[in-house]
């Protein structure tokens, strides 16, 4: 009997905790929405957070984008050469970046660079009673601390994605034109011909907006529910990165199915 109940517990626990987590996330989301007005009235709080999560991520995003673009250039060149169509390398690099790789990789990088930081900061503030202190001073810590971070993520990810895309295309250009000696004119004109502003560029940025939203929500949620201990905060930070990556990839599938 005991084995059976244990067995059911083992299977049931992950499911029930997943459902509880989704429920808590939704409730947190509503709370964040209702508190947004307060934070929008104090833009300097949001600007500060955008600086921490966005501006300080510029370098890693730019460098990663550049390398991803170069790899796309090399791989694309090898494959296209077999079909004798290296001239479309420009479109290949641009489309894969704008539609898929840019938003997805950028969101995952953002989660590990800035999202984990948000989780750790909120978790530590909770562990050291700073959030309690704030609420005893009649300041709602969610509005004062959490919402600015949340909004900053939503602002930063699309902008960082645009940067990632740009650097990636330049990286692809560097490999294709400067290293592999493709014709520069063909590279750009093929790209220009095949990339559509609405279908590719805007849709990619809309994806990034959704990703920014989900990554920020996960980050602040994990921070708020972290156990107020050193292990608790470190576990929550790890969960932020793992859950964000999973959520971004799953959401990417859904969005792609609807958009393209």
């Amino acid at each position: 009997m005991r084995h059976i109940t244990n067995f059911i517990k083992t299977i049931g626990h992950p499911f029930s905790s997943l459902i509880i987590m989704l429920g808590e996330c939704t409730r947190l989301f509503w709370y964040l929405l209702t508190g947004c007005l307060y934070s929008l009235k104090r833009p300097q709080l949001i600007i500060k957070e955008v600086y921490f999560s966005g501006v300080l991520s510029l370098l890693i995003i730019a460098v990663s984008g550049w390398f991803v673009g170069m790899v796309l250039g090399l791989q694309g060149y090898n494959t296209l050469q077999r079909f004798g169509s290296v001239s479309v390398l420009g479109s290949l690099v641009a489309l894969s970046l704008l539609r898929e790789l840019g938003p997805v990789l950028c969101a995952i990088l953002f989660a590990s660079r800035a999202g984990s930081g948000m989780t750790a900061e909120i978790g530590l503030m909770k562990a050291t009673e700073q959030l309690d202190a704030m609420s005893v001073m009649a300041v709602d810590p969610i509005k004062r601390v959490v919402i600015p971070k949340f909004i900053s993520g939503i602002i930063a990810v699309p902008l960082l994605t645009a940067l990632f895309d740009t650097c990636g295309i330049l990286g692809g250009h560097f490999v294709g034109v400067n290293m592999l000696k493709l014709d520069q004119g063909t590279f750009w004109s093929q790209m220009q011909g095949s990339v559509d502003l609405h279908n590719d560029v805007i849709n990619g940025l809309i994806k990034a907006l959704f990703f920014g939203f989900i990554v920020s929500l996960i980050s602040v949620y994990q921070g708020l529910q972290a156990k107020p201990t050193a292990e608790g905060v470190s576990a929550a930070t790890t969960r932020t990165v793992v859950h964000s990556a999973l959520a971004v990839l799953a959401l990417d599938f859904i969005l792609t199915a609807f958009m393209f």
Partner: peptide
Amino acid sequence: HDIRKRLGLLFQFGALFT
């Protein structure tokens, strides 16, 4: 919150904003 504006609490471990 209105009541909390009228009281001050010194936390046992300070709880300064770091």
